Amino acid sequence: DAPDEFRDPLMDTLMTDPVRLPSGTIMDRSIILRHLLNSPTDPFNRQTLTESMLEPVPELKEQIQAWMR
Rank of each mutant, 00 (worst) to 15 (best):
N38T: 15
M15L: 05
R34L: 13
K61S: 08
S39P: 01
P56F: 08
Q65G: 08
F6L: 06
P56M: 07
L10A: 04
Q65M: 15
D28V: 04
I64Y: 03
H35N: 04
L60C: 07
M27W: 05
P3Y: 05
L10K: 05
T16H: 11
P43M: 03
L33A: 07
L54Q: 01
D28I: 09
L54V: 04
V57C: 13
L37K: 14
N45C: 08
P58I: 09
T13H: 07
E51T: 09
D42E: 07
I26Q: 01
M53D: 12
D1Q: 14
A66C: 11
S23D: 06
H35F: 12
I26R: 03
I32K: 00
S52N: 12
R69V: 12
E55H: 09
P56I: 06
V57E: 08
T13A: 06
T25G: 06
R29L: 10
S39T: 11
Q47Y: 09
R46D: 14
L60E: 01
T48S: 13
S39Y: 10
S52Y: 12
S30D: 11
L33V: 11
I31K: 03
H35R: 06
A66I: 11
L33C: 11
F6N: 01
D4C: 15
L54C: 05
P3L: 05
R69G: 11
T25E: 08
G24V: 03
M53G: 05
L37C: 10
L14M: 09
T13Y: 07
E62F: 11
V57G: 03
W67M: 05
T13F: 07
E62Y: 13
D1L: 14
T41N: 08
L21Q: 01
V19L: 04
P40C: 10
P9C: 08
L10C: 12
R34N: 11
T50L: 10
P43N: 02
A66L: 13
A66Q: 13
I31Y: 07
L37F: 10
T41V: 09
E5H: 15
Q47V: 10
L14F: 08
D8L: 04
R46L: 14
P40Q: 14
P3F: 05
P3R: 06
T16A: 10
T50Q: 09
E5W: 14
L37R: 14
S23R: 03
P43Y: 04
M27K: 00
R20Q: 07
D42H: 04
A66K: 13
Q65T: 10
P18E: 00
I64D: 02
S23P: 00
P56T: 08
M68H: 15
P40F: 10
D8T: 03
A66N: 13
I26N: 01
E55S: 10
T50S: 12
Q65D: 15
L14G: 00
S52E: 14
V19K: 01
L33N: 06
R46W: 12
P3D: 03
D4G: 13
D28K: 01
I64P: 01
G24A: 03
M68N: 07
E5D: 10
D42G: 02
F6I: 03
P3N: 05
E59M: 11
R29Q: 04
P40R: 13
D28Q: 07
Q65R: 12
D28L: 05
M11L: 10
I32M: 02
P18H: 03
E62Q: 13
D12Y: 15
E62I: 11
H35K: 05
T48I: 13
T13I: 12
T41H: 09
D17L: 04
L37I: 12
E55N: 08
T16C: 14
L37G: 09
P56V: 07
R46P: 06
L33S: 07
F6H: 03
P43I: 02
R46E: 12
R20I: 07
L37E: 13
F44Y: 07
N38F: 14
L37Y: 10
S30A: 14
E59D: 12
P56A: 11
L54W: 04
F44H: 03
P40G: 11
S30V: 12
T16L: 14
I26Y: 04
L54F: 06
L49V: 07
E62R: 14
R7T: 07
R34A: 14
R34G: 10
L60V: 05
S30E: 12
T13E: 08
S30L: 12
P43H: 02
N45Q: 06
T16V: 13
L33I: 11
P18I: 03
F44S: 03
M27D: 01
W67D: 03
L36A: 00
D1Y: 14
D1K: 15
P56K: 06
R7M: 11
I32G: 00
R69Q: 14
T50M: 10
P3V: 04
T50D: 13
F44A: 02
D4Y: 15
N45M: 07
L49C: 06
Q63W: 09
P18T: 01
F44Q: 03
L60D: 00
P56S: 11
Q63G: 05
M27V: 08
R69L: 13
R7F: 13
Q65A: 13
P3W: 05
D17Q: 05
N38L: 14
Q63Y: 08
L21G: 00
D12L: 14
L10V: 09
Q47G: 10
V57L: 13
L54N: 00
F6A: 02
L10R: 04
L36Y: 02
D8E: 03
D1M: 14
P58D: 09
D4I: 15
I32V: 09
R20C: 07
Q63P: 00
L49W: 04
W67A: 04
P22E: 01
L60R: 01
A66S: 11
P22C: 05
E59Y: 12
W67R: 04
K61M: 09
E5R: 14
S52M: 10
M11I: 07
K61V: 08
P22A: 04
E51P: 13
D4A: 15
F6Y: 11
P3M: 05
K61Y: 11
Q63C: 10
A66F: 11
